[in-house]
Design a protein around this nucleic acid. Structure first.
Lengths: 258, 258
DNA sequence: GGATGCATTTCGATA
DNA sequence: TATCGAAGTGCATCC
């Protein structure tokens, strides 16, 4: 089993090759001059030009130009690809329902078409996520604050699940919100919502404390935290020399870094 | 000028073809059995398997498997691609600074390599964005509320720029936050921050009203809006029969749709 | 299927 | 360059 490639195929030959590749569950690339129309959650139109179309067996469609990481047009997994020759053009239509959306790629000319038999692992191992930061804290709660004792993760509240819930050295309830990178105003708002929600749920008079744990904060976020009486702790998912991931660690309760 | 393709090239031939393609500013696809290592904002590792590597002349690198819309690994535009043969493997390294990150793709075997000369438009025309929603409201402010009079867009506040600022039929200041799709708690928080900020800036006693304009809201967002005394108006970027974009329009101040 | 929040989010606009 | 917010965000998870 190997790569099948057609150079400057007729539309009819391209159609047959595409159908055969779909049948075999292969990934397909089509490079050629085309227009692209999308209609669904929004609507878009793209004039003629040379682009690379990638069709995956899971229903994903990607249209790439020679710039940007993001495809200029696409269709999510779960869509259905169909091919036809109409008005002298090779039309590839990718469609899905719920939400209803359609991607139409019309090739005036196909420069190259390849069917790629893909095998092998897809599972990528990522380090330095928010989950790693949580593990780090559960292993060493003093990083949040001396005497901090975690009680639960993903604790449910009316405002949603709290990353880490616990108590400080005086027994006061503490809500910890984790972010793997520098945070803006949204994170401060999120933490505020959690604290407010728990303030109502916790019966006894003890006030709920809120702590944002992240590598750093923006000025505006810092102001918001101050207004709401929330704290910030500078901490990254992994120490710089502990996993190759950039980011310094510090436990000063009101220090951060640019 | 046309597509250059190599089938099962030697690593040395692949290296030469890649270098030549970079030189010519062409986009390149490499399909083969490889491992991938990433290190930068996070870190990741991917075992051996067949994948499609796309290298763009703007410095973008994408590694795609046969599933998902999102590449399994990537490097953003502005990175620099380099090629080498080491330890019997073809190594493609894509690197950038600020933030420092590196993507390493090591091919044990290259099934196919293509250099694609890309030309033509890249500008896609998208309809149904938040900007369209704003235009719709400026054209017909009554859609927000009878008597609403827009005064400024992107009005600056201490909490950031407000989508639309204006006054109601009684002269009270109104902050309008627009969303092109169904909104959750974050949008309610965002609007709340703007209203609070303006409440301080506006000197006279008139209380600032906040209105969230979107196709619909989630329950929790609705509760948050109620708590903060903010209103909701159901409105989509375009009427369903007005631009092919899904979404109904309605001006009921406290109605929405599932 | 909807809701919620993380993401190597990406991306553009702005100060 | 950093900040901020939009995006056809994508995506997993939990209900």
């Amino acid at each position: 089993m190997s790569v099948t490639t057609l150079h400057r195929p007729t539309h009819r030959d391209a159609l047959e090759a595409l159908s055969a590749a779909f049948e075999r569950g292969e990934m397909v690339t089509v490079f050629g001059r085309c227009t692209v129309e999308y209609d669904g959650r929004a609507a878009s139109s793209l004039g003629a030009g040379d682009r690379l179309l990638i069709l995956k067996p899971d229903g994903t469609a990607l249209v790439h130009t020679d710039e940007q990481r993001t495809p200029v047009n696409w269709q999510p997994p779960g869509s259905e690809h169909r091919v036809a020759v109409r008005d002298g053009r090779l039309r590839v239509r990718s469609e899905r329902e719920s939400p209803a959306e359609t991607l139409d790629v019309r090739f005036e000319r196909v420069h190259q078409l390849s069917a790629l038999p893909v095998t092998g692992g897809r599972a990528v191992d990522v380090h330095g996520s928010e989950e790693d930061l949580r593990q780090r804290i559960l292993q060493n709660p003093d990083l949040v604050e001396p005497g901090f004792e975690p009680a639960a993760t993903e604790r449910e509240t009316a405002a949603g699940p709290v990353d880490v819930f616990g108590h400080d050295d005086e027994g006061r309830p503490v809500v910890v919100e984790l972010k793997r990178r520098r945070v803006g105003p949204d994170a401060a708002g999120q933490l505020g919502r959690y604290v407010e929600a728990l303030d109502r749920e916790v019966p006894d008079g003890a006030e709920v404390r809120g702590m944002l744990v992240a590598p750093s904060v923006t000025d505006r976020a810092r102001e918001l935290l101050a207004e709401k009486g929330l704290s910030f702790v500078s901490l990254a998912p992994a120490a710089a020399d502990d996993g190759g991931v950039a980011g310094a660690a510090s436990t000063a309760s009101d220090a951060d870094e640019a």
